[in-house]
Design a protein around this nucleic acid. Sequence first.
DNA 1: TTGAAAGCGCTAACAG
DNA 2: CTGTTAGCGCTTTCAA
Lengths: 333, 333
Amino acid sequence: MDPRSGHKPPRRPTMVDVAYRAGVSVKTVSRVVNNAPYVQQDLIDRVLAAVAELGFRRNGIAHTLRSGRATSTIGLVIEEIANPFYATIAAAAAEVARQHDTLLITASSEEDPDREQHLLLDLCSRRVDGLLVVPASLDHGFLRPEVQMGLPVVFLDRPGGGLEADTVLLDNRGGARDGVRHLLDQGHRRIAVLFDSLRVYTMKERVEGAQEASPVVVQGGVRDPDTAARVVGEMLDAADPPTAFFSTNNRITVGIVGELWRRGSDAALVGFDDFELSHLMPRPLTVISYDTGALGREAAQLLFSRIDGSRSGPRLVTLPTRLLQRGLTTVVG
Amino acid sequence: MDPRSGHKPPRRPTMVDVAYRAGVSVKTVSRVVNNAPYVQQDLIDRVLAAVAELGFRRNGIAHTLRSGRATSTIGLVIEEIANPFYATIAAAAAEVARQHDTLLITASSEEDPDREQHLLLDLCSRRVDGLLVVPASLDHGFLRPEVQMGLPVVFLDRPGGGLEADTVLLDNRGGARDGVRHLLDQGHRRIAVLFDSLRVYTMKERVEGAQEASPVVVQGGVRDPDTAARVVGEMLDAADPPTAFFSTNNRITVGIVGELWRRGSDAALVGFDDFELSHLMPRPLTVISYDTGALGREAAQLLFSRIDGSRSGPRLVTLPTRLLQRGLTTVVG
DNA sequence: TTGAAAGCGCTAACAG
DNA sequence: CTGTTAGCGCTTTCAA
């Protein structure tokens, strides 16, 4: 590019530039910029004028490096930002962070352990003040050096592996148990439980919770609503069909709702997770609900208590679930 | 605290520590850590061993300050992280960022112009490489110095004010026009348009687009589903009721669906925004759909093209909408 | 191929 | 109250 082409020099003004322009020392500029006390109004005015004229803005990088203070940034590693569950967690964490004048870097692991590790270590390099992690892998030992040097880590939704750290979980097992008991109370004895994979912590807990309540028919590999619909169809067409279904997540629940509605079936349905518009589903259902925001909030609060210096042993918080009636009570068709 | 209480010194090892331990110079450590060429394998091994033993991790703050390179961070300021619309935008932006080895700081303005300004300037201090902004205020002139010094800014969903910058919008006006025309084609002549506030850019565009297609009855102040339901009830109970409703966002749409269902009304409904589970709504409806992810993706791609040096004039991208049939086709009741 | 010295922009610790 | 000096941890010269 032609250096004479009139582009403003892309170099940002520094405190030295401001000091020169205002005719004061750099330290005075620093004091004014940081609202330090004991500066003459006269100098304050001159500095602020120079700041405005030059378009100066403190370089937070240099500030953080020199002062050794916190970056006022925390990291959140989740599976998928667009998923409403994680989005709600992120929003709650961001709000707690804001109360501590801290910003949130959110990144998706996409369930990939390598990616999770890469992201977490990158965040460590950036010297975040703390880490909120929905584990995608079973081993987080690679974080141990960082934790030993004072980096607080909180796991949420699932326990982390190979690292002692605060953890916030849902009562998956208890919720599932309650859900199946609810069906038993209504007289159901043939109950089918649909789940995706037992390798996912929450799913395993939920299936086991269901089994604690009653012997049930379990069916895995249900990874999306369409599969759920197909599986329900097959079960209802088979001999001695289930009179009730228990779903272990809301994607499965939605698939079941659709299929039961299409068939005009009156089979009962209890599903883990509430979801938006569940009250407008075309048939009644019961959901196992919980406070997703609380998950993020509790985790973030725990994190900041550590950042603020709390040194007690690792804490485990388990959040309760509750049953709610959902769906339109007039049957469609 | 007792200094002898066995806590590991919270001081992180630096390249100096690693160099000392490996018996090499700091510069060699730097070379190894950064995978620079021309280092003897022997030294590489010793340095890596020392790195592992000490739990060294490069201080990204110092790296960024000294090298003057990008922070590999971009900022996204939206209204509300938990809202699926913004969550989808954030996910798309994060994915594009990832392709550029960049992390995303997401912050909510909560529609508060002061908070928006504070957040944006904070992000500038942190020397993010670029800014993605869903405007909450009408004037972003305060960003001009930063933009002049080379900070790329892209507005999305709404135009920014007082600042020339790339912008990515939806075709709100055209979508609304198409929606109302769809109702006209079906023979409807008494069409009610429900909206929240004309001070919101997208809402104003949508209402005006509807009016471009046909004279309609407009009703503002509809800020949530319950209000929408109440308003619909009042309209249907009045003399000469509308035969069709046009909703300007999905919250209003959901409220209308519920009320029409409760009344068993066969009034037609077209709503701006598609939404999750719209296909399971207990009555037919038509939605004006668009690719929310594309909004975030286009904006982020535009941002990175600027970060990578593109210097053409400000660009405006408008994304298309399309009509889709939703809802269960058997009427509930 | 390796190292010594300087310095990124800022603030801590002094001295005045 | 204000200024000078040194240095955060790293990378960029530039010698060796």
